[in-house]
Design a protein around this nucleic acid. Sequence first.
DNA 1: CCTCACGTTGACGTCAAGGGCAAGTCTGCC
DNA 2: GGCAGACTTGCCCTTGACGTCAACGTGAGG
Lengths: 130, 130
Amino acid sequence: MRIGDIAEQTGVSTRALRYYEEQGLLSAERTARGQRVYEEPAIERVQLIQQLFAAGLASRTIVELLPCVDTGEASEEALALLRRERDRITESMAELEKARAQLDRVIEISLHPTPEHCPALRTETALRPA
Amino acid sequence: MRIGDIAEQTGVSTRALRYYEEQGLLSAERTARGQRVYEEPAIERVQLIQQLFAAGLASRTIVELLPCVDTGEASEEALALLRRERDRITESMAELEKARAQLDRVIEISLHPTPEHCPALRTETALRPA
DNA sequence: CCTCACGTTGACGTCAAGGGCAAGTCTGCC
DNA sequence: GGCAGACTTGCCCTTGACGTCAACGTGAGG
């Protein structure tokens, strides 16, 4: 498969794919004339990379973790990195949940306007009658 | 309170606070000579802004939502925006969860190496005996 | 009055993940 | 063998949330 095929099947631009290669995230064989040739596992690989990007991992972090994903082995160092990133993700999820709760509260209030929280709704005071 | 106090109490840099003002996220009175003066609610406000940033909202989006947060009222448009962002956050959380699961899997495997998944662990095939 | 930390604006730098363009090359198909 | 479309590298551009530096004003204590 050539780069355009991978782009089509993953929804990732060819520019991005070349960028991944540049960053050491994705490797490809080459034809005699220099064109990139991919095997099917590349699709899965690209999707994994996208997921990790979406989770806020930096390319430099991903490049350190991919070998572990491939071999199933992780040095102490790599293991620590894995755990740090996992914990960071967990924290991010908590942050997202809090932010979503804030938005939900505003949505609720704007849908059911009651005198108490009309003027200035504060997280704490809005719940008390005072 | 002056800008340094807010910075200290929120952990947000003075540069960031001025940026927030520039973006219309945070307002401040001024002394006769032009120095910013904040009231205490500014602290809460800054923390809210940080939360929304952490949730991936852009400053332009936040600037549209803050009035709703203050008044508890939202136009149809604002309400739609609120819902879009809430849904986006929900999606992000799902993405994070998937990525975390991937990392957890790598951690598990590297901790309990077994022959099956040593060579190349694939999401699907790793579960089947092959 | 001096000092010195703190404040001001303005402008430019950074960093990451690509976008986009140019100029040239390759491939597949008629 | 010719053409269109896909591919190559190289390079600069973009966006957002600030960092950083410069050059200068402010204000409270000694």
